[in-house]
Computed example of a mutant assay.
Amino acid sequence: MEASATADEPTPTRRDFLFIATGAVGVVGAGAAVWPLIDQMNPDATTLAAASTEVDIGNIAEGQIVTIKWRGKPVFISHRTQAEIEAARAVPIDELPDPATDQSRTQKPEWLIVIGICTHLGCVPLGNDGPFQGGYFCPCHGSVYDASGRIRQGPAPKNLAVPPYAFDGDAKVKIG
């Protein structure tokens, strides 16, 4: 019975081969024609270069806040004092409007790196200002952040954002 089932199957012909070969060449040709259109949508080299920035932090004095630009946004790099670190870690988490520990916001306790844009309406807060030592104050609407960039008073709903960053030794940090 199986012998008759295989006898009913048509055998491949030269026309079948040409049909498959022509279709394969057509698919490859269409892919080659569409690829430049897809490839031109990738970001150019200047955009990729702006995606990350490397900062030399070796010259930032303890207690100093430096502002750099990353992706068109201000980024605060704060070399915190031991008193600022202790004050930031002593805050009870349940007192914060947007609870976050100081340890979760820093990779090294002496360095705080945050995006310097107020989470209320996008103003730029002032560093080393306000009632909290080493904190930030937004004069536009009165938002106050502590030395860990956490919102403590005012209308801002969230803490200052922490960008992705990694330390490259003791004197350099790569943001982005």
Rank of each mutant, 00 (worst) to 15 (best):
E84A: 08
L37Y: 11
T81H: 04
F76C: 03
W70K: 01
D94W: 08
K69G: 05
A5N: 12
E86H: 06
R71S: 05
D94I: 06
S78P: 03
V28Q: 11
E84H: 08
V55Y: 07
P36G: 00
I20W: 12
E95V: 13
F19K: 14
V55D: 07
T6L: 14
A87R: 08
T81Y: 00
Q40S: 11
G29N: 01
A32H: 05
T11P: 04
E54H: 03
P109E: 13
E95D: 15
M41Q: 11
P43N: 00
Q64H: 08
I57D: 03
L96C: 04
P36W: 06
A45E: 11
S78A: 14
G29I: 03
K108Q: 13
G63N: 05
R105E: 04
S104L: 03
E9S: 10
P12G: 15
M41E: 03
I85N: 05
H79T: 02
V66N: 06
D98G: 03
R89H: 04
N42P: 05
E9R: 15
A24R: 08
K108H: 08
Q40E: 12
S52W: 00
T6V: 12
T11A: 14
L96S: 03
G26P: 02
R15Q: 12
L37W: 08
W35E: 01
E84Y: 00
E86L: 14
G23F: 14
A50Y: 07
D8S: 15
G63P: 02
Q64R: 10
